[in-house]
């Protein structure tokens, strides 16, 4: 190929390659950052509407939509310090790694045919395995701060994980039994005859509840319960580190809602008069709004209530769902 740019040609080729565009623009880093900030605005505005308040108003011509960008700039220029007697390495690295984990989740989601950063064969278990690391990071962040509220928040994240993790995996097993594949793009293709939300209604309910618990959002936001343990594991973070601690919450909300629509709502499948990407984003937005309304509707559960409900009710329902799915796939046993 005749190069007009000389030695810069490989760089230009790399920058204009489709994979690079996907990683940098959509569904990659730029869109994750912008969508995360917009979701922060949407959550504040929606919660305010539910509670008969106005919410963010001033930071733009239209409904305060730039409020989170203003907060982002403010936080980026605040003074940064590490509290005394804390483990500075883990204190800084834990929320930063959490940010990377959140972005890694979005990379596994098929947003449209071919519009997927990493189309790996074990997409669904990989997603759930990456998300499993986040309570460990929260415990590490809480431990390294050498302060009581963060440490209590980190321990709560640890115990909360034991309550939701097994029902989460077992509810995902129902979808795998129906689809016969672990690849997320093939799970979407398997739903061309019918969405899995109908045969997997119970599994979808368990998955929604346990993923809200995984995201540590109300009613399961025990690790950061701001009215009882003062933001929990985030209590000692300032400035950019507070941003890095808060950001993964919205990125995980985005990724989990996208995963829910991939697993149960047919992903990018939809009527052909609009592009697949539109249907995918519409379904994701509906799930996001549903989860945000859960936040503004329900009170926070107690840790022992959550543990008991997770190990008895949710686990029993998840095993029941596996039994129902077995009968749907294999059929009634012939005696």
């Amino acid at each position: 190929m005749a190069s007009v740019l000389g030695p810069l040609q490989p760089i230009v080729d790399m920058v204009t390659s489709p994979l690079f565009l996907q990683i940098v623009l959509f569904p990659g880093l730029t869109s994750i950052a912008i969508i995360g900030a917009l979701l922060g605005w949407l959550e504040r505005k929606l919660t305010a509407r539910v509670q008969l308040r106005v919410g963010p108003l001033y930071a733009s011509p239209a409904g305060g939509i730039l409020q989170m960008f203003a907060d982002l700039i403010k936080l980026a220029f605040k003074e940064l310090f590490v509290p005394e007697n804390s483990d500075a390495f883990f204190f800084i690295m834990a929320p930063t790694t959490g940010l990377v984990l959140g972005a890694a989740l979005v990379g596994l989601i098929p947003f449209a045919p071919g519009l997927q950063i990493a189309n790996i064969e074990v997409g669904l278990p990989a997603f759930l395995a990456i998300i499993t690391l986040s309570p460990t990071l929260i415990l590490l962040a809480g431990w390294s701060a050498n302060s009581k509220f963060p440490f209590i928040g980190g321990l709560r994240a640890l115990f909360q994980q034991t309550a939701y993790e097994i029902p989460l995996w077992l509810s995902a097993l129902g979808v795998i039994m129906m689809a016969g594949t672990l690849n997320l793009a093939q799970i979407v293709a398997a739903q061309s005859t019918g969405w899995f939300i109908i045969p997997q209604a119970l599994g979808a309910f368990i998955f929604l509840v346990t993923s809200v618990a995984e995201m540590e959002r109300l009613p399961f936001d025990l690790p950061e319960a701001e009215s009882e343990i003062m933001m929990g594991w985030q209590a000692e973070y300032t400035g950019v580190l507070f941003l890095a601690a808060q950001g993964p919450g919205f990125v995980k909300l985005y990724a989990f809602s996208a995963l829910f629509s991939v697993m149960y709502l047919g992903g990018f499948l939809g009527p052909g008069f609009l592009p697949p990407l539109f249907w995918m984003l519409l379904k994701t937005l509906i799930i996001i709004v549903l989860i945000m309304l859960l936040r503004s509707t329900f009170p926070r559960v107690r840790l022992d209530q959550l543990l008991r409900a997770g190990w008895t009710t949710l686990l029993t329902l998840a095993i029941l769902n596996i039994g129902i799915t077995y009968l749907l796939v294999v059929g009634l046993p012939t005696l």
Partner: peptide, 11 residues
């Protein structure tokens, strides 16, 4: 719970 995934995949 992980063992069940191998079974569910090949159900």
């Amino acid at each position: 719970a992980m063992f069940l995934f191998a079974w569910g995949l090949n159900l």
